[in-house]
């Protein structure tokens, strides 16, 4: 509409437009500069607000027990007390917690992406009895808050002897996640049907099409789903709180919670512990930002 009108105006009244243009574009240029200045101001102030707590965490983790309680505060941790980190690693088994978190994150993520894309292929490319009903039932599962299923799940895990093991924290992921299935199905639907048809003529079964055609072509969607799943597992607190009792099984968030409970007033150590849990996911994020962003945008689409 707008484009059409602009074209009309240019062709029918060339003289009027030519005189009006300098004023309009000058005004427009000023408005746009003002808008950009305001935008930069807003963005910069927000950026500082976002960064500061992280800076304060790292800075506090490098202070001595005396420095940390100075009023007014000491803004720079000079000289940095790297020994705080040595002490934290000696006192608490953060190495073990990191290993546990990594292990659960990898198992959970592999489970989610494999099982979800497996089911999603069925929904996207196979016609079978009851397919659409089952899809609606799957999506409805997203509406159920985890707190409702939490207690019966605990009873079940207790019955089969899985309490105080890592199993409850990764095995369920291998049976499909509703969100993952939705996301992968949407992506599979964008892959041309002709590709699958020609593979079928070449004698490929559905399993072959799934593994040799759909999965390699879906790498961006798989990467986004993998990162969101990994982040969910890595930051999960309620699950480990409910299921894990032995200290050797703790994950980073649980270990950090217990550690901070023991060292309530030792803020330098607590902040060192917090920094240790933030760094690994930060490294992953820096290298995979675009997939994270895409994943978040897709995750919003489910609503």
């Amino acid at each position: 509409m707008g484009a059409l009108r602009a074209v009309d105006g240019a062709s029918v009244q060339p003289s009027r437009r030519a005189t009006a243009r300098p004023y309009r574009s000058l005004r427009k240029a000023i408005t746009s500069i003002i808008a950009k200045v305001i935008a930069y101001l807003l963005i910069s102030i927000t950026a500082i607000t976002m960064i500061f707590p992280f800076y304060w965490m790292v800075s506090s983790s490098l202070k001595t027990e005396v420095e940390i309680f100075l009023v007014p505060p000491k803004w720079l941790p000079i000289p940095p007390q790297w020994n705080n980190y040595v002490y934290v690693f000696q006192q608490v088994n953060f190495g073990r917690y990191t290993y546990n978190s990594l292990k659960l994150g990898v198992l959970w993520t592999l489970g989610v992406i494999l099982s979800s894309s497996w089911a999603a292929y069925g929904f996207a490319r196979v016609r079978f009895w009851g397919r659409d009903t089952l899809f609606i039932i799957t999506l409805a599962a997203m509406m159920i808050p985890g707190q409702v299923t939490m207690i019966p799940m605990f009873l079940l895990m207790n019955k089969i002897g899985w309490v105080n093991t890592h199993y409850p924290l990764w095995v369920p992921a291998w049976f499909g996640s509703a969100f993952g299935i939705f996301l992968m199905r949407q992506y599979f639907l964008t892959i041309p049907q002709e590709l699958c048809d020609s593979a079928k003529i070449d004698g490929c079964t559905h399993f072959g099409i799934f593994w040799r055609i759909m999965m390699p072509l879906s790498k961006p969607a798989l990467a986004s789903l993998a990162l969101l799943s990994f982040m969910g597992s890595w930051n999960n607190l309620l699950g480990p709180v409910i299921y894990l009792y032995d200290e050797s099984l703790f994950t980073l968030p649980l270990g950090l919670t217990r550690f901070s409970g023991m060292y309530v007033t030792y803020w330098a150590y607590t902040m060192a512990g917090a920094t240790i849990t933030v760094i690994p996911i930060l490294i992953v994020f820096i290298f995979t930002q675009q997939y994270f962003v895409r994943g978040v945008v897709l995750s919003g689409l489910k609503g």
Partner: peptide, 23 residues
Amino acid sequence: YRAIFFLPTITSAVAISLMWAWM
């Protein structure tokens, strides 16, 4: 900037809670 704004989202609620509790 987008990366900076996104930092708190990827950080665990536990670490976030502790750093704010100290602040």
